[in-house]
Simulated scan of single mutants.
Amino acid sequence: MSFNVVNKYRTRSRESCEDADRDADRVCCDDPCIEDKDGSMVCVNCGVVKGRSIVGNETRAYTAQEIEQRRHREPRWRGFGPRTILPNEKKDYHGNVLGSKEKTLFSRLSKIQKSLVSSIERNLWEAKPKLKQLVSKLNIPEYIEETAWKIYSEVAKKQLTMGRTIDGFVAASLYAAIRVHEFPRLLEDVSNVSMTSRHTIIRSLGLVIKEVLPELGLKYAPVSDDQLIFRFGNLLELPMQVQKQALKLLVQSSRRGLQKTGKDPKGFAASVLYMAAKDSNYKMTQAEVSEIAGITEVTLRSRIKEIKKRLR
């Protein structure tokens, strides 16, 4: 019975991947099935990576001919406005040439329809694929993606992108949605994936927090150091007992008046992890902890001194 089920599964997988297997350069296994996984063409049966499928930006248009060609082939990402494209050929459905009056009429209709495509819609056309690319690379849930798109739509309506980069606001909108839902992703993760500088994202994020989130009724929740403890602990492969001890040290020092205002929470999370690992006789160097946390060793030692003063 199980043998028949396996054969049926393989038959379905072979039929669904027939087109992809035809383009493969070499056979990786007896039953290849190539699929697109996070930008890479991977065989789901043996795990061999065939290559990469790059997701590019939309084509930029500069001349009148390029603009006209782009209007006919660019994707429609919006849910409003005209969806059809009137052709330039002055012929009817049967292929007959239109008269002079009909040509004038359809020329005016085509001009009116093209004028309905506003600058906001063009902005959204360019921003939507970029947001989807970031969501795919960071493995962001769908509900956070919807919140990010709602935030960016409000940004476009307020014309905050005038004189600023769309990439910066797309990344800032996504990170703002991440912080609204308190999802475990850092600003550095968004910056690295979007290939946008941290300074640009922070500058755009400030405008989003100040002018967009209050109108949408969303509350921005900063990153807390207790959330980072378990993230850094897993990256350092520390036992759960050590991570819980680090959290206990952080709670005790906070109750005794540890000043956290204006300081990066990554420093406090890394420092208590290092202290807990040292107390548990777990070998861990300051260089390893600071590299995982994305801070300097000087910052790590400074935060350790501050915590030890409160724990005395």
Rank of each mutant, 00 (worst) to 15 (best):
Met1Val: 13
Ser2Val: 10
Val5Pro: 00
Asn7Pro: 00
Lys8Pro: 05
Lys8Val: 13
Lys8Leu: 09
Arg10Glu: 14
Arg10Gln: 13
Thr11Lys: 12
Arg12Ser: 10
Ser13Thr: 14
Arg14Asn: 09
Arg14Val: 05
Ser16Ala: 14
Asp19Arg: 15
Arg22Leu: 15
Arg22Cys: 06
Asp31Thr: 14
Ile34Ser: 00
Asp38Gln: 10
Asp38Lys: 13
Met41Arg: 13
Val42Thr: 09
Cys43Asn: 02
Val49Tyr: 04
Val49Pro: 03
Ser53Tyr: 01
Gly56Cys: 09
Glu58Ser: 05
Tyr62Lys: 13
Tyr62Phe: 10
Thr63Leu: 03
Glu66Pro: 00
Arg76Ile: 14
Arg78Glu: 11
Gly81Arg: 00
Thr84Met: 09
Ile85Gln: 05
Pro87Thr: 06
His94Ile: 04
His94Trp: 06
Asn96Asp: 12
Thr104Leu: 09
Arg108Tyr: 11
Lys111Val: 06
Ile112Leu: 09
Gln113Thr: 04
Gln113Met: 13
Ser115Asp: 11
Ile120Asn: 07
Glu121Ala: 08
Leu124Gln: 03
Trp125Cys: 05
Glu126Pro: 00
Glu126Cys: 05
Ala127Thr: 10
Lys132His: 10
Leu134His: 03
Leu134Met: 11
Ser136Glu: 10
Lys137Cys: 06
Lys137Val: 05
Ile140Trp: 02
Glu142Gly: 00
Thr147Ala: 08
Thr147Glu: 07
Trp149Ala: 14
Lys150Gly: 07
Ile151Leu: 09
Ile151Gln: 00
Tyr152Cys: 04
Ser153Gln: 12
Ser153Tyr: 10
Glu154Asp: 14
Glu154Gln: 13
Val155Gln: 01
Val155Ile: 08
Gln159Met: 11
Met162Val: 15
Gly168Glu: 01
Ala172Phe: 04
Ser173Pro: 07
Leu174Trp: 04
Leu174Arg: 03
Ile178Tyr: 01
Arg179Lys: 10
Ser197Tyr: 01
Thr200Val: 12
Thr200His: 07
Arg203Gly: 09
Leu205Val: 02
Val208Pro: 02
Glu215Ser: 13
Glu215Ile: 02
Tyr220Ile: 08
Pro222Tyr: 08
Ser224Arg: 14
Asp226Met: 15
Asp226Asn: 11
Ile229His: 02
Arg231Cys: 03
Gly233Gln: 01
Leu235Ile: 11
Leu235Trp: 03
Leu236Pro: 01
Glu237Trp: 02
Pro239Ser: 06
Ala246Ile: 00
Val251Glu: 06
Leu258Ile: 08
Gln259Phe: 11
Thr261Asn: 08
Gly262Glu: 08
Asp264Val: 12
Asp264Phe: 05
Asp264Ser: 15
Lys266Asp: 02
Lys266Gly: 14
Gly267Pro: 00
Ala270Gln: 04
Ser271Lys: 03
Val272Gln: 01
Tyr274Trp: 14
Tyr274His: 12
Ser280Tyr: 00
Asn281Trp: 02
Asn281His: 11
Lys283Gln: 10
Met284Trp: 03
Thr285Val: 07
Thr285Asn: 07
Ala287Leu: 10
Val289Gly: 04
Ser290Tyr: 04
Ser290Asp: 02
Glu291Met: 14
Ile295Cys: 04
Ile295Ala: 07
Thr296Gln: 03
Arg303Glu: 05
Glu306Leu: 15
Glu306Lys: 11
Ile307Cys: 07
Arg312Ile: 15
Arg312Ser: 13
